[in-house]
Write a protein that binds this DNA or RNA. Structure first.
Lengths: 157, 157
DNA sequence: GGTCAAAGGTCAAAGAAAGTCAAATAAGGA
DNA sequence: TCCTTATTTGACTTTCTTTGACCTTTGACC
């Protein structure tokens, strides 16, 4: 445990003792640990991933911040998978619709919302060369899963 | 919430609690918040935009003022506009979020759905060269609007 | 009508965060 | 040892905010 990354990780984990939501300033933290600011990004990227049940939001500029949310551990299996889906694999429109359907069955989405999302992910909506559409959809589905995980979590206390 | 802009925004939003019309004096406000007068313009320009459903009128000179009006949206007009939005114009993520916000205010979307859609339209979700993301979002928003219109249609027989 | 002070408007530079990326280094395993 | 993977650093970028200098419009007063 001699490396800074692990120390910073532990520090952050402790901040989660009180709450499931932690807000930090990248520069402050870097300063506190006397490391490069980008080291913070490294820690977040490798340890506070959606795969491990964290969602990160941030904002630049004056008054900027990084916000970490911890998700509860009884997450939906499907969402967990989706959040990690490799973009390189791509996702056809048909596959996306099937996934949306499954999410409806699990009551994670309602039909209405699923329809809207399907529209947004349709070939018609995605104005780009055909070859990249599948990749786009995969990325979109991943973000959707992350957002759903966060929502699910909030609802389940 | 460490930045003044957000604080001023909140202050103004509260003024809208009573009425859809708010009149302010730029200098007074700047003085009240101990900031440069042009800071007020910045807040107005970034937060009280037409995309969010606000209209601003102002007058210079002695007895000058800035008048903010919050529009109650005409649902169908908003969707009609969106359906026809030119993709070539593109749409930044910020603009997209503002539009989603308006759709919520018009009860066309609920907050939850809006958040999900925002996630799908985020820069992170759209894995593509930066230059094409705005065009993609415009296309996605258009499809969303079309889907919403269809839904409304069905609901209204 | 001309002058002037009182507003508000514009714009660009500086400042404040956070993000990205790649090179350099360290740690582990075959 | 040699190769692979993980960490550390730092230069550079992007985004958002703050500030200030200068511009334009308006109305009051002579």
């Amino acid at each position: 445990m001699a490396n800074i990354s692990d120390v910073i990780e532990q520090f952050l984990v402790q901040l989660f003792a009180d709450s499931d939501n932690v807000s930090i300033s990248r520069n402050e933290l870097a300063n506190y640990f006397s490391c490069a600011p980008s080291q913070i990004n490294y820690v977040l990227m490798t340890r506070f991933t959606p795969a491990r049940g964290y969602v990160i939001e941030s904002r630049r500029g004056g008054g900027g911040y990084i916000n970490l949310t911890r998700l509860s551990d009884n997450r939906d299996k499907l969402l967990d998978e989706l959040v990690n889906i490799p973009v390189s694999g791509g996702m056809t429109y048909t596959a996306a619709v099937q996934i949306l359907h499954r999410l409806c069955e699990s009551k994670i989405l309602d039909e209405n919302t699923a329809k809207l999302i399907a529209a947004i992910m349709s070939d018609k909506a995605l104005i780009a060369p055909a070859v990249v559409k599948d990749g786009l959809r995969a990325g979109m589905m991943r973000s959707l899963a992350a957002a759903l995980l966060k929502k699910e979590d909030k609802e389940n206390g």
